[in-house]
Write a protein that binds this DNA or RNA. Structure first.
Ligand code: SF4
Ligand code: SF4
Lengths: 142, 142
DNA sequence: TAATATAGGACTAGCATGGTCTTATATGCT
DNA sequence: AGCATATAAGACCATGCTAGTCCTATATTA
């Protein structure tokens, strides 16, 4: 089926939260966002969210700060981060059909398959929809 | 992740096969297509394909003929059958996020969730891509 | 009556998802 | 120094879905 898994959604929720926080320009307020802060604000399981943020940090999308008063902060322009980028971190390469993401073809139907080319076109259209939507678009008013 | 499951692919393969057969206008050749014929032509597991075709017949997309020399034949204009229609038979309602297909909301994040509206827009765009692609489009040259 | 087709239910191995728990480490505050 | 709190990372697990098999019943033709 076509759907986001929870990790992707939690990542998007957290990113939206951090973008909005940055936009608010609250002088004095820390720009850092901790996993706990997001977990409590949106009722997301803390342990799982923590690892989601760790992965985002590992990919360089956000920067982490250790220790008390630590947390995360955006490391890139949110306009430059696409929804498909987040998705592929948590769900692997997007492919409507298995054969669209494989080096060596494992699908037994491949030889005789006559639908792979038209489906590949659909695949590209959906991919570009997701690639053309940045996480900044998720923030209301953007 | 965003992908078709095998049943959907097998259904699309079978539909494409039947459309092409109908287009060929072979006088004398039976227009009926058996599950075994498709299974052998595309190396699809017969038992599984049989049930896929049964479901398509149950939904009225194809008509079944019992007995020896029986099989299936298209019951509707393939231009009028969308890819999303086939998908939703085998994978349930399409929804990028769970909350897009529920009557009563079960997602714990729903109240505070700020990404559901922008994601819903994405959802509709993808849905219409799939709704605007008919199974007839899958046939080469269409 | 035998062969072959659809109809449909029961069952299962394997895998992905979504989650928890534990430990290690870094940092700020008193 | 010592504690509280933050990230980092791995092990572990319950549940549900996927993709498939197998078996039986029924309809039709030769
Ligand atoms: S070859 Fe055809 S059946 Fe196999 S994965 Fe690609 S599209 Fe699907
Ligand atoms: S409410 Fe938000 S988090 Fe919950 S399913 Fe909908 S989009 Fe996802």
């Amino acid at each position: 089926m076509i759907h986001f898994n929870r990790k992707t959604e939690y990542a998007l929720i957290a990113m939206e939260h951090m973008i909005r926080k940055e936009d608010s320009h609250d002088i004095g307020a820390s720009q850092l966002t901790s996993a706990r802060e997001v977990a409590e604000a949106y009722q997301v399981p803390y342990s799982l969210l923590a690892k989601v943020l760790q992965q985002l940090a590992g990919r360089g999308l956000i920067k982490s700060v250790h220790g008390t008063k630590g947390g995360y902060i955006l490391a890139k322009d949110p306009e430059e981060i696409s929804v498909i980028h987040i998705m592929e971190i948590f769900e692997g390469p997007m492919a409507l059909a298995e054969c669209f993401k494989e080096e060596k073809i494992t699908c037994p139907q491949w030889d005789g398959c006559r639908i792979k080319h038209p489906l590949s076109q659909l695949n590209h259209k959906i991919y570009h929809l997701l690639a053309d939507t940045s996480v900044a678009h998720l923030v209301a008013g953007h």
